[in-house]
């Protein structure tokens, strides 16, 4: 067999192989485009419909925006039908107060707790970490009844406190930060700081926190999203509050309550609640996806 013919046989096989891969890649590409459309279409229709009047929406489906944007906005902010249940300014404000305070508490105290467990040796160290791991899975739905009745006894229902203070104890975040410290916080640093005369709390604030920035950034984003989107706890604790104390998701919930729905305005309200978080996501998506991937490698 000559060298040439061998080359041509292998060459043909190779061509065939790359061709197959190419075809497969294109088919998969098409499938991903379809999935992308499925992911984005509801959001797109939402944005389009927020610019259309209720009559237009009921009369037909369209992918082209109409000119009713400001009209819908005006109805949402001034109509008596929505005034008692939806007020986006209050919604943003209340959600922001609860979310920002809860996020700061979660991140700071989780870092503090994981630092305490990581750096110091004490008798209850192992057992306290085991407790944290064990309670990681208990969902709020299980403790809800006891929590609500306890808060009613303390007369704290209808206030924001029960939504903010519990954020101090976030077992899953402690678990994540402990794993992060294990891999990238050498204990020699603490000893060096002691020799330089730094106090224990000072070492944590001035040295540990800056070193944990990557973990803190990721966990802040997740804590923020989780609190911002939370419907269950606020809806449970804020039993009977006026519109001025409702969070955004609670306002969304009240949109479904009426039988006669002005769809243009409903779409407008949903769009106003969804757009800020999508915009934030566009900028932070790299962080977020890296964070999710980290959470997955737990084995």
């Amino acid at each position: 067999m000559s060298k040439n013919s061998m080359k041509s046989t292998y060459g043909a096989a190779k061509d065939n192989y790359t061709k197959k891969i190419k075809i497969k890649s294109w088919i998969l590409f098409a499938w991903m485009v379809i999935l992308t459309i499925i992911c984005l279409l509801p959001i797109y229709i939402l944005l389009i419909n927020s610019t259309r009047s209720s009559v237009e929406i009921q009369n037909g489906f369209s992918l082209i925006p109409s000119g009713n944007f400001s009209e819908n906005f005006k109805t949402l902010t001034t109509s008596s039908q929505f005034k008692s249940s939806v007020n986006m300014v209050y919604g943003y404000k209340n959600s922001a107060i609860i979310t920002i305070s809860a996020t700061i508490l979660t991140v700071f105290f989780s870092a503090l707790t994981s630092y305490g467990i990581h750096v110091y040796d004490f008798k209850l160290k192992e057992i306290s970490y085991t407790v944290i791991l064990m309670v990681m899975m208990v969902p709020v739905q299980v403790t809800g009844a006891g929590f609500l009745s306890f808060m009613i006894d303390l007369k704290l229902h209808n206030t924001f406190w029960p939504l903010i203070i519990p954020a101090v104890a976030a077992p899953a975040v402690v678990y994540f930060m402990r794993s992060y410290m294990k891999s990238s916080f050498p204990l020699e640093i603490v000893e060096a700081a002691r020799i330089d005369g730094s106090g224990e709390f000072g070492t944590f604030i001035k040295i540990a926190l800056p070193m944990m920035k990557p973990a803190i950034a990721v966990q802040s984003i997740f804590a923020f999203i989780q609190n911002w989107n939370n419907l269950y706890t606020p809806q449970m604790i804020l039993l009977s509050v006026g519109v001025e104390k409702k969070t955004l998701p609670m306002m969304m919930a009240s949109l479904t309550a009426s039988d006669k729905i002005d769809y243009g305005v409903v779409y407008m309200a949903i769009a106003l609640s969804v757009v800020p978080i999508i915009v934030a996501y566009v900028f932070l998506s790299k962080f977020i996806i890296a964070g999710v991937a980290l959470g997955g490698v737990k084995e």
Partner: peptide, 19 residues
């Protein structure tokens, strides 16, 4: 894009699909 639905407020998503 495929991760995006996960960060959108579930309450809003529910009302959106209801509409």
């Amino acid at each position: 894009v495929m991760y995006m639905p996960n960060i959108i407020t579930a309450a809003s998503v529910s009302v959106l699909f209801m509409s």
